[in-house]
């Protein structure tokens, strides 16, 4: 079976013609089921661009990228939107909708699933929040939650739909050591139990110990891993 992420010779450049500035050069990367891979590297090394390509947030330019069985090279917008629904995204900033409660934010993900009822969605969202330790705060607005709590809501939102892959960008950057470690442990447990791979961009040395593999990128090339 093909691994959940299978990249071969991916190249990407910003700008065009004379001004083209390559940020990824012949990147090949494979992530297996349940594997936790950290992407590290100096800023501007292209790791975030790689993450947005894998997340189908950006159109491919060259190479081959199969994510959850979907070839992204030449994929149509509708195919990319469809793939995004099967990926759980966790952003550096929680990006929760401020006018929705924690539970409603999490339930938004489930609105993308056909045939779910409102009751069903809210129940599943509530259960997921309980699982990340926020059962008591499910009906609070994001503004009333601490930074760590918000990031846990974001984790719940990414996981509630049962994604086949989790992509995260510095999810612990805004958190203190303790909370950051807890969020990471949460993700790791999911990956291990469900066989969901996690690809995470991070600078945070405190969480390196939780990874199966660390891939370092420099100047658009994979240097270790």
């Amino acid at each position: 079976m093909r691994p959940p992420i299978d990249l071969a010779d991916v190249c990407y450049a910003y700008g065009s013609g004379e001004l083209a500035r390559p940020v990824l050069r012949d990147v090949s990367l494979s992530v297996g089921p349940g594997e936790i891979v950290l992407l590290t590297g100096p800023s501007g090394s292209g790791k975030t661009t790689l993450l947005t390509l894998i997340g189908a947030l950006r159109a491919m330019q060259a190479g081959s990228a199969a994510v959850l069985g979907q070839q992204l090279m030449g994929a149509r917008e509708a195919e990319r939107v469809g793939l995004r629904r099967r990926i759980g995204f966790i952003f550096q900033n929680h990006n929760l909708l401020g006018f929705l409660t924690a539970r409603q934010n999490v339930a938004m993900t489930l609105e993308l699933e056909p045939g779910t009822t409102e009751q069903d969605r809210l129940a599943r969202a509530g259960a997921m929040l309980k699982a990340v330790g926020l059962g008591e705060r499910a009906d609070a607005l994001p503004a009333k939650l601490s930074g760590g709590q918000r990031q846990r809501v974001a984790v719940a939102r990414a996981l509630v739909g049962g994604p086949g892959l989790v992509l995260a960008d510095e999810p612990t950057a805004a958190l203190d050591r303790q909370t950051g470690h807890e969020v990471m442990a949460l993700l790791r447990d999911l990956a291990k139990q469900r066989g969901v791979p996690i690809l995470m961009v991070t600078h945070d040395p405190r969480i390196l110990d939780l990874a199966d593999r660390v891939v370092a990128i420099e100047d658009g090339r994979v240097v270790t891993g």
Partner: peptide
Amino acid sequence: GPVAWKESEINRLPDLQPQPPQ
């Protein structure tokens, strides 16, 4: 582990199963 998140409840959530891509 250091985190007491409710593993048992995660296990009970049917939708947390990775969905078959097709």
